[in-house]
Nucleic acid binder design. Sequence first.
DNA 1: TGATAAAGGGTTATATTATAACATATCAAG
DNA 2: CTTGATATGTTATAATATAACCCTTTATCA
Lengths: 159, 159
Amino acid sequence: MDETGFATHDHSGCIEAGLARAGRICAAAGARLTPLRRQVLEILLAEHRALGAYEVLEHLRQNGHPAQPPVAYRALDFLVRHGLAHRIERLNAFVACSHSGRDHAPVFLICRACGAVAEAGWQPGAGQIGAAARAHGFRVEAVVAEALGTCPNCRAAAP
Amino acid sequence: MDETGFATHDHSGCIEAGLARAGRICAAAGARLTPLRRQVLEILLAEHRALGAYEVLEHLRQNGHPAQPPVAYRALDFLVRHGLAHRIERLNAFVACSHSGRDHAPVFLICRACGAVAEAGWQPGAGQIGAAARAHGFRVEAVVAEALGTCPNCRAAAP
DNA sequence: TGATAAAGGGTTATATTATAACATATCAAG
DNA sequence: CTTGATATGTTATAATATAACCCTTTATCA
Ligand SMILES: [Zn+2]
Ligand SMILES: [Zn+2]
Ligand SMILES: [Zn+2]
Ligand SMILES: [Zn+2]
């Protein structure tokens, strides 16, 4: 699957492909993609934006699955641990991963206007952050990189 | 003032210099560094790590200034708006700025073991994030870059 | 100067995000 | 089946953050 970025596209394909890929990843990892976890992933895949845990919970309830907060947090934690979703720190929210299965460090492009999130891959060790870490004798284990701005669709709508 | 990074140093100098610099910056900007705001900045400057708003509040109270949460949040918001402190999204916490006065985009190196935070400057537009944004037609307005890992001191202590 | 507007701070209450703790259910082996 | 491990259900509560209101201080200007 290619970068969808902010371009319009056949979105039902995103959902199906994402679920199928998640199934393969979990099978390969010996992890259990239970109906609940699969449903939460489907909720995230249904949008190219980040959802708060309580938004996910609300979707679950609307889908006929009444649940309490820990249910949503645990499912989201599973998805994040297995690389099927990411947590966006800036938003206290979660987004389905666009590159699941590939070992990658994500950088998120978050549109202030419409909330859309695009995920780009990068090499944290290669660029300026890696250089800064080496200069400080710091060993990097994980990087959060989140850019806020405006996506091309929103700039076209209100330039 | 130079990068202190994770190196040991005369820390009382950090506090005095930081307060003096903040005074100059606020005077130049026509902003009011009131006693409360100055006290909160001093609390942050006293540590090279990020403090949660409620930790700041606790320090305020111990310093003989009983206060409610909005007091801490408003002072922290002032400091962040004027570039005297930064919010670390990953930690829901705040840290005194090491580069205040200079126009800069910060990248934070956060030690998992001891909580120390070093702040390095970078050029978000120049590297991979800028390239990714351009490739997506995305206009970047602000970047959060936070690296978690281990600082040289902690690696020396427990390699 | 005194009136008035603007900004800061004090306080209460409440919203939002997240987790601890424990009970029950389901699953995988042996 | 039994048993240990994993997953889910549920209650309560912790941790983080803000809305709204009121009063005081500071700045502006007639
Ligand atoms: Zn899509
Ligand atoms: Zn947009
Ligand atoms: Zn210092
Ligand atoms: Zn350390």
